[in-house]
């Protein structure tokens, strides 16, 4: 029983990470840094709350969240693919923009500077361990499928092959006739859509939007991507690992000998360790961040 409750809480915490890092892997494998994931999620969460509030349907909310993430990813694509602006700067700015815009329209639409009113979501009343309630939430299934689908697309489809080619050696890809810019556009738009769904999950699961509700989850997703070495199955495991650590900390609140702040640090410390190559080096796609040639 304890274990099942632990498991169901871990799954719920892992959901936003799984969505965001599934999108992020696509973007990063095409050579575009996923620094804006946090912004896509925040925009997705806000649009999902807005859509669900006005239509009384969580499905419309989900669609709106997907669109909200895509719009921000389109802005990122416009700045970095079309105009070749520096990806790191654009990514940081996308996140600042998402915080500002969602706050502005939170006041505009709901007259509040902290949260939206209650909106309809998918979740049903929790009983027992909560595992059964999870099975009734369609977004849990989508979240569970997101990473395997991205993995399948990357390794088993012509589009995935092109994404990987463009991310490793855009010059070579171009010379065999792959439209590099178009492949990157598609990858970044898809990454925004999937990460936007992660934001929608947050808003619909909590039945409201709250200011800055993503709270750094986009960066944890980025950490999972690096810790999982840009390989979907490993990235998925990294998401579950980070989520399990968080659940552990929540369950042991107060009783734990380890302060909560140190548990919070785990994903970030592991990522640095992976990058520094203490146990096998994490090597990014060769053309990551380089769209300025």
């Amino acid at each position: 029983m304890m274990f099942l409750a632990f498991l169901s809480q871990t799954i719920r915490i892992a959901m936003p990470y799984l969505f965001a890092s599934a999108g992020g892997v696509l973007s990063e494998r095409s050579g575009l840094i996923g620094l804006g994931l946090e912004g896509y999620m925040l925009s997705g969460a806000f649009c999902a709350a807005l859509g669900s509030y006005y239509s009384h349907s969580p499905w419309i909310g989900l669609a709106a969240g997907l669109a909200g993430g895509t719009v921000f990813a389109a802005l990122y694509g416009l700045c970095s693919v079309r105009y070749k602006g520096d990806q790191v700067v654009v990514g940081v700015a996308i996140n600042l923009l998402a915080v500002g815009i969602t706050r502005f329209f939170l006041r505009f639409a709901f007259g509040s500077s902290s949260n939206s009113p209650r909106v309809p979501g998918f979740s049903v009343a929790e009983t027992g361990s909560g595992l059964l309630a999870l099975a009734h939430d369609p977004m849990i299934w989508m979240g569970a499928l997101a990473m395997p689908v991205v993995g399948w697309v990357l390794y088993r489809t012509p589009f995935g092959l092109r994404v990987r080619a463009v991310g490793e050696h855009p010059g070579a890809a171009l010379s065999v006739g792959i439209p590099v810019a178009r492949v990157r556009w598609l990858a970044v738009l898809l990454s925004g859509a999937i990460a936007g769904m992660g934001g929608a999950y947050l808003a619909l699961d909590q039945h409201q939007f709250t200011d800055q509700m993503t709270a750094g989850r986009g960066f944890i997703a980025l950490a999972a991507i690096i810790f999982g070495r840009w390989d979907p199955p490993r990235v998925g495991l990294a998401c579950l690992l980070f989520a399990a650590a968080e659940t552990f900390q929540i369950r042991l609140q107060g009783a734990s000998a380890v302060p909560a702040q140190f548990v919070e640090m785990i994903p970030y410390v592991l990522t640095i360790v992976a990058l520094a190559g203490v146990v096998g080096r994490a090597v990014p796609p060769a053309a990551l961040g380089k769209t300025d040639e």
Partner: peptide, 23 residues
């Protein structure tokens, strides 16, 4: 207007500068 308008403007300045420098 909500003061957050300024947060938006700051982000827009960053995006516009970094995009227009190469252009």
């Amino acid at each position: 207007v909500p003061k957050q308008m300024v947060d938006v403007l700051q982000a827009v300045v960053i995006i516009a500068v970094v995009t227009s420098v190469p252009e």
